[in-house]
Design a protein around this nucleic acid. Sequence first.
DNA 1: TTTATATATTGTAATATTGCGATTAAATAA
DNA 2: TTATTTAATCGCAATATTACAATATATAAA
Lengths: 110, 110
Amino acid sequence: MGLAKTEIFTEDQNELALIGKVFAHPARIAILQHLFKVKACVCGDLVDEIGLAQPTVSQHLKELRNMGLIKGDVEGTSVCYCVNVANWNEMKEKFKAFLDQGIELDQECC
Amino acid sequence: MGLAKTEIFTEDQNELALIGKVFAHPARIAILQHLFKVKACVCGDLVDEIGLAQPTVSQHLKELRNMGLIKGDVEGTSVCYCVNVANWNEMKEKFKAFLDQGIELDQECC
DNA sequence: TTTATATATTGTAATATTGCGATTAAATAA
DNA sequence: TTATTTAATCGCAATATTACAATATATAAA
């Protein structure tokens, strides 16, 4: 089918999967890493930095924006992007709680 | 295209994206959560727990296995699955380092 | 107003993912 | 041997993702 049966999973599981999805492409990882490094930059700089065509980068930026992880401020003909720190931290805690759930397991099982 | 241009990204970026991808489906999140809860269980129990058809669950288990996050031990006609704790912890540290990279940013930018 | 610049959107082709019925494989039980 | 049980694999249909050329939009400059 190509579409997940989200209705049979919990809200928490679906949300964690959406977080996973937004990180599931190296271009989006690279965009976030660059934004963390330079704090804020214009779309065109990201296009140069990433090495994909402008519409492709724009598309990845849109997905990051839709997830609330970045914000874009229009400045003349440019758009200045940066990490949405509040949302990033919220997402981060949620995902780290998932990653840390097995902290008590200290050996193999089967 | 449907396929990422991995050759233009760093090894680190591609690996983080692969980690994201394995978490990008609620069924795989649910499988991992269940394995953490019950420590180890047989494939059939996961099929009951998850609520997807057996071939579908088997496919998700394969992806988790390919990423090294779980192991399956054949026990008669059954297969007992569990988290591969060493690999899980390694992956976890790598991903948490990525999530924590912006720790010094404490306010909005644009 | 016209032109240039920067970004978003649209449309499309190629590929990937998801889900499952049907089948296969492998071990055990009768 | 012949079921039976359990899980993996195959094949397919439906949908999603990725990438980009072409175009639209919006602001600024001439």
